[in-house]
Design a protein around this nucleic acid. Structure first.
Lengths: 255, 255
DNA sequence: TAGTGGTCTAGACCACATA
DNA sequence: ATGTGGTCTAGACCACTAG
């Protein structure tokens, strides 16, 4: 990207005047975000050094730093002193459990084992379609899986994904893959998950879920409804998780 | 606080060398935190300007800024351009719902009405005492209250507080007080809550809770176990909330 | 008009990783 | 030895608030 990417109208002092005011580092941040969205720098890859970006955008290193600081605070980039700045990936252990808030009673982050129960393509029900920004009846991939911790089933997930973005995703590929699901999405389908919204409720286990989770029907379960987003706030996953919270809990820190 | 507060051993370049390395701004941050902990600046009050702090600590404005930046990111301080930097308080609307993650189905943050059903002093059960860092049997204040949204009971809270820190807290004072509970704690007892840990589970309503929440016994409820902390990571509140999630959900955002 | 936080720069130097 | 991120400074100027 050339320096010309900075709108010419911003040339004098490079500030937007009038309607809205946007500091230089916010504009740089937007440019970096755009490069990430376009896939110019893939997950796990290094982005150019601060000095190089500074000369590319014709600003000082400090201004680039501030832009990167914010992206790092949002977990989109990872800084490594002495090495460089990298695009976040769901493959490293540190990012791996970013979206998993389930803990064992003793506080440990138990290692979960995925067992896929189902994977098929279907027409999106109205509610799922709405959340994914698709038309009702659009093609979606439906996945059902069981998360086991220490061999006991703990979570039953139902997942809906836009069919167009996940061409070729099927039961065999899921079963063959070891590692985090979002790692697969990112590597195989070029869809990095960067944010998720969760709605939690308590519900009673129905017959089917109870059977899969090996608990009596009617058992209180923690329902976690998630919508995940990729760059540009595009929703790309709807997930309904049913959790047995007899020996586990959902952890959250308020600040 | 005089500049001498900076350890003399740090004088050359003011860096800690050897065992651990701690940048200047982290040391400044620690000093500011200490002033907050000591109550030198009360909630809602303004702290000295950046320039004044810089001259006080004999560092540049930029270094003070970086320290304040981190404290603001942790919601301990609030910056207001053109006015100053203020100590966070639970009295302003913006901080008011910081610790309340319950939303109505339509996404709105419903205004909750508190109705206190119980307040008495008791000896701390072992588990509560452990979480509060007290000895079993230590004096604690026990509070039970019902949170109503649009006149329907939605949350039943049970709260334990260290007796020594909350002298004089009784049913009458609770009932007379309008506004957020943490505002009361901060103003009347000098205990600002700055962080909380929550553990969520799904449980079945027992007879008593079901009665108060006006749901059938056995109804799945969201159990929210919270431990709140004040400065220095001191635990000062244990709370058990039972939420009816028929028309409300617990909201969480993952980044 | 004065004071406060917010932005931006240029340059020096430090800590860390790698070759 | 080199290159990267991380810290710190001094100073200029901008945006915002309030007397």
């Amino acid at each position: 990207m050339s320096p010309d990417s900075l709108p010419a109208s911003d040339a004098p002092g490079r500030r937007k005047r009038g309607a809205v005011y946007s500091p230089l580092y916010k504009q740089i941040k937007r440019l970096l975000l755009e490069s990430l969205r376009r896939g110019e720098w893939k997950p796990a890859a290094a982005i150019p050094s601060e000095l190089e970006l500074a000369s590319r955008f014709q600003v000082s290193q400090g201004t680039v730093r501030k832009a990167i600081d914010e992206l790092a605070a949002e977990n989109l980039l990872v800084r490594r002193q002495g090495k460089g700045t990298y695009v976040a990936t769901h493959h490293e252990p540190r990012s791996q459990y970013r979206f998993l808030r389930l803990r064992a009673d003793d506080g440990t982050v138990a290692t979960a084992h995925s067992r896929f129960v189902d994977c098929r393509r279907m027409r999106a029900p109205a509610e799922i379609a709405a959340r994914l920004g698709l038309k009702t009846g659009a093609n979606v991939v439906f996945v059902r899986r069981l998360l086991r911790i220490a061999s006991a089933p703990v979570v039953l997930d139902e997942i809906w994904l836009p069919g167009r973005m996940f061409r070729g995703l099927n039961f065999e590929r899921l079963a063959a893959y070891t590692g985090p699901l979002y790692g697969l999405f990112e590597t195989e389908f070029g869809v990095p998950m960067i944010r998720a919204d969760e709605h939690l409720r308590a519900v009673a286990a129905d017959e089917r879920s109870a059977g899969l989770l090996q608990v009596p029907p009617g058992t209180p379960l923690l329902l976690v409804e998630r919508v995940s987003y990729t760059y540009g706030d595009r929703p790309v996953e709807v997930r309904r998780g049913l959790c047995v919270t007899r020996e586990h809990y959902y952890h959250n820190m308020l600040t």
